[in-house]
Structure formats: C-alpha cells, structure tokens
Design a protein around this nucleic acid. Structure first.
Lengths: 220, 220
DNA sequence: CCAAAAGTGTTTGCTCTACACCCATGG
DNA sequence: CCATGGGTGTAGAGCAAACACTTTTGG
C-alpha cells in the first residue's frame, strides 16, 4: 500500500460573544493579506484535542472551554500533489466575560471578528466557518450549549440574549424561560446581580444534566 | 514546529439490513482472533471519501452509497510513541437487496454481522461502532436517511420495517405513513409489488427534497 | 372464500405560541 | 416616585398519539 507525506494541523473555530455580537477568533494567515482560522501543528505525544485546547489557551488564556471535533479535511496540496495537508477542525465555545463585554486579545495578532460580515479569509476557511456556524445554530436548537458562551453564572436575560444573537431572531421571554428551566439544564444560585432595574437571579449550568437534554428539541 | 511520522487510514462503518436485522460490515482484523471495521490506506491523489468509497466498492460491489464523515481518531501508537495512526472514520448506508434479504459477500473474507450481538472486535472499534449506531438512530429521527438502506423503490411497509428495526421500537402504521408522506421526501411510482396479500404501491426517494426535511423532526 | 398484507380518518390530549401586567431596585 | 429591567400565567391553536376496519390480491 503506497503511503505518502502528509502534514497535520488542527484548526480551531472558536466562537464567543463580544459586544452583543457573535464573533470568531482569527489569526493572520500564511498569506499576509488574509485572515485565517487559528491552527497549530500537533506535537508528538499530544492528542488532536489537546493541540486544539493548547492553541486556544495560548490565544485567549482560557483552558476549560467547550470543544468538539467538527470535521477533517485532507485535500491534496494543489501545488505539490504528493503532499497532503490534513486539517482536523475543532469547534470551540468560549465564555464571554461577564456582561457580554470584555477582554481583547493581541496574542500572535489574533483578534475577534463578528461572524456576520467577514471577508478576506484564507482559502477554504470561509466554508469551514460557515459549516461551524450552521452547526452552532443547529446545536443550540436541540442541545444545550448556549451557556458555554456565558460566564459561570448568568441571568436568564443574558442567556436569552445569547440565543437571540446566535439564532438571529427574537424569542418570547416567558416561553424561553419556561423551556430552559423545564429542560433542567441550569439551576438557580443564591446570588443576584444588581444593575439598573430589578436585580436578576443568577443561574449556573448543571454539568450532571447534559444527557437528558437531547430528548427533545429546545426550540422546534 | 516538530512534526512526526503518522500513518493514515480510512475506516468504514457500513450498515445494511440483512434478514430483518441491522448489520455492519466487518473484515478480519490485524489480530486474527478479532474482527475489525474495514479500513484502507489513502492513496496519493485520492480524497478520504474516495478511499472510503473504493473500499466499500471492493467489498460489496456497491458504488453509489450514502457516505458521511463521522470522526477522526489520531491516537498515538501505544507501542511506538513516535508513531501516530490517524483513522478517518466514515459512515455508510448500503441498500438492502429487494425484499430485505440478500446477497452475501466473501471478498477479503469480510462479512455482515448483526449489530446487536457483537463481540471480539478489535480495540477501539466497538466504541466507534457504538458511536456510529447512535448517530444512525439520531439521524433517522430528524433527517431522512432511512431509505438509503432500501433498494431504489420500496413499499411503505418496507420503509416502516426499516425504521422499526433500527430504532428498535414499533411504530404506528397510519401515523408513520402520514408523516413520511407529508415530509415530501418520497414519491409514489406507478408500479406495484405483488406478493402475499394485496400488492403494495412502490415509492422512490426524491433526491431534490433533502433540504426541506431538516425543518422538523420526523419522529419527535 | 379464506388468508395475508395494504391502505385509510377521526377523536383526544398535549404542547407550542401568543400575549400584558406587576415587581424590585437605584437614582 | 419614576425609570429600568426582572419576573410571572393563561387561553387558543396546532400537532402528535391512539385507535379498528375495509380493500385487494393469491391460493
């Protein structure tokens, strides 16, 4: 069986909320005129997931993020046909700093870009991003990943805002609360958050309750 | 950036119906006491998907099958830590020959095994299979892959039987028909199939109607 | 005419949706 | 006491589930 040379990288499509917009983390591409999904070689004795996690840690300082394998591309290099670039793409959700606003980053010149108006991405990366985005919206509907984009505790209004931003549609407040609470995936904490208006009860994710959710769609 | 040696293979988890049971295609493993998912090296100038398709063609004679990438494993070889085996796993649905019975194969000594009582699989392969099976059941609920396991034309009873076998539960005949037909994913042909009892109208898949289906679950 | 499988509607309960007002706090 | 966002219930519509008999063919 003939084998051949291949290069291996992991790519990360990392989403987060910045100033009430869904953003993706991009780094300068190999072509300096383009932005690209952050990627990294996989070191010896490191799993794909570890490599992706490490890259995200490096760029954002966040270690414990939601991470899931998305797809693996293995197309041949157009120039040198003998050489194949294997890109294992991971999908990550990073918590927004409290209040949906927050930190900026300039490690390796990577930055957050709103997903809705992106151009000048490196070849193929727009397709990968579009796929990841579709997957995110999809997941939000039948699974319960929303709060992975929020800090450890959050109000129901913040959570609803998150869903609205990603799904790009308005949701009914009462229905939203009922469904999320009935799904049993979050639980109230004892603390409140003040601000303008009446203080909001803060909730936290119940890590034990992941499995149950898949039964029915949250937003059919 | 340190790179290192890696071997690349594609694996196929190919499902089909044999004698009213859901079966998976297995080949002799590298350890001769074990069965394994059929795999193949990826040739130069061949995409992952082409490699998977070719392997299935070789083992079953079927070329146009439903195929989708499932997951990529890249664990380190336990023995030689410098060496990594990258396994890109594909998920395939093969049409049963008419009437849910059918052809046997003995190419490369590969055979069909019912998924419900499997043992003696090669390391990791049971997990991969379990994952693929979960995915199949899942897909069946919200998407419309069921008839990929049937021949080109089929009766509604056969289709229902397929769903019942895979989901391992009984479905109501009238409700099943209504939903499938309302989903608009199949259309009646002009032919009937005789047999015992009243002849059944045959249906065919409408390839144009894939996108629509995702809107709502077929079996909530 | 009997056996065997195909085909067909309606009622009931439940779930989703739409909708408007009171509550708690800070200034 | 007023502005701001947080929090709450219900009625109606639409969808899903349960259910049994008639039709067509072959032997």
């Amino acid at each position: 069986m003939p084998t051949h040379l291949s290069n291996l990288e992991v790519l990360a499509v990392a989403f987060s909320l910045r100033e009430e917009r869904l953003c993706v983390l991009l780094a300068p591409g190999s072509n300096p005129a383009c932005w690209a999904l952050p990627g990294s070689a996989v070191h010896v004795e490191q799993s794909f997931e570890e490599a992706a996690r490490q890259k995200i840690l490096l760029l954002t300082g966040l270690r414990e993020t939601y991470l899931e394998q998305l797809y693996t591309y293995g197309d041949l290099d157009q120039a040198q046909k003998q050489e194949r670039l294997i890109s294992v793409v991971y999908f990550a959700l990073l918590p927004a700093p409290a209040g949906l606003h927050g930190y900026t980053q300039d490690v390796e010149r990577s930055t957050w870009f709103p997903v809705d108006k992106l151009e000048g991405l490196e070849k193929n990366h727009s397709d990968i991003l579009a796929y990841a985005l579709r997957r995110l919206r999809y997941k939000l509907e039948y699974s319960a990943v929303g709060f992975q984009l929020l800090p450890e505790t959050f109000s129901l209004s913040e959570l609803q805002q998150t869903y609205e931003i990603i799904l790009a549609e308005r949701l009914d407040k009462r229905n939203f609360r009922r469904r999320i609470l009935e799904a049993g995936i979050i639980e109230p904490t004892s603390s409140l958050r003040g601000g303008e208006g009446r203080p909001a009860r803060l909730y936290r994710y119940r890590p034990d309750a992941v499995a149950e959710v898949k039964t029915r769609r949250l937003f059919p």
